[in-house]
Amino acid sequence: MIVYILCFVLFLVGLYGVLTKRDLVKIILSVGIMGYAANLFLILFAYKSDSFYPILTEGKENLSRVDPLPQALVLTSIVIELGTTALLVALAIKLYQKYKTFDITKIRRLSG
């Protein structure tokens, strides 16, 4: 149970960062932390104690294994997060070129 609570704390750290930080790069990192927390959730749900990794290996066919599906899901979601981060970094660079600052409170031409 304690691992789930710690995982939730990690999620909250990310959420806190998104809500309170003013630096674009820190916001991007916080979104990343939230994503890692969600991935960790998936992996924790799949974990069984005394189990083997879910890949067929010669001589170990009959062992009990952890659930492979969440690991596949996490791989997919890591790929998606890689894309998100790359896109957000590109946008942050463009925003710096235009506004000469990384401070989100100074980047507000749109409001109302």
Binding site: A86, V89, A90, I93, Y96, Q97, K98, Y99, K100
Partner: peptide, 17 residues
């Protein structure tokens, strides 16, 4: 290619604000 394009970008110039 993504990292190459990000690395090539000159962060100081390019804005027309």
């Amino acid at each position: 290619l993504a990292v190459l394009i990000l690395a090539k970008t000159n962060i100081e110039n390019g804005g027309e604000v």
